[in-house]
Design a protein around this nucleic acid. Sequence first.
DNA 1: CTGAATCCGGTTCGATACTG
DNA 2: CAGTATCGAACCGGATTCAG
Lengths: 132, 132
Amino acid sequence: MERAGSPDLYAADCPVRPIYDDITSRWATLVLTTLMTRPHRFSQLAARIGGISEKMLAQTLRALTRDGLVNRTVVPTVPIQVTYELTALGTDLTPHLAALVTWVSRHTSTIQAAQAGYDADIPIPPAVANRR
Amino acid sequence: MERAGSPDLYAADCPVRPIYDDITSRWATLVLTTLMTRPHRFSQLAARIGGISEKMLAQTLRALTRDGLVNRTVVPTVPIQVTYELTALGTDLTPHLAALVTWVSRHTSTIQAAQAGYDADIPIPPAVANRR
DNA sequence: CTGAATCCGGTTCGATACTG
DNA sequence: CAGTATCGAACCGGATTCAG
């Protein structure tokens, strides 16, 4: 049933899961694909990615740096400069993420239509419908 | 139809985001890759996927069905039988997800090593650092 | 068997204020 | 400029219970 050599992702304690979650988290994907084009500084990333808070950006960058996907370079000027760029590992990964994002982008309208159809088949919508 | 080459994923209200979050969620990936092999019934999925609760399984399946990625078939026997299988759309998507999972699986030990190296460079755990 | 509804603890998130 | 500290709000996920 299962191909030998592939780790069992289905085990609850599979070590792949937390890493997978890191990479596919809401903000990590945006950070990684942004860095795919060129290195960015902290404030450049914050400006580029709509709606991210400083806390979440710092947290996401720390996780990605810890995972060895992003390299953090500090230039001790005044004021200080910090640059983030993809490592070789990150450069290897990001196209896979980008492919996924591209797929979703291309099928967004189809999926939205499916959602609308699904919602329309519900006779009495839950509390949301009454409430305006 | 969206522009596949340059989706503005960076806008805070980009419609791609919630869909992307749906399919990359912790359980959705496991459900989709499981269904990739063959259709499953509810209890079969629950048995196959380690650590998932009924609530999360039902919730995940409902979201994926609503997105048009999974087809839900009810056989009105007693007791009732419900079968889930990938739609054409889901069949198209899942390989991308599987590729990502495969990538992570293959690089898990590398990433774990990077994490260990990163953690080793932290002299004092921040949480217990001296207060002023 | 399938899955909806409820409760509830833990985690996450965002806004703000502050430091080097 | 590049973060960290703190705090309340929001969300998530698990266990339980109940219904079709």
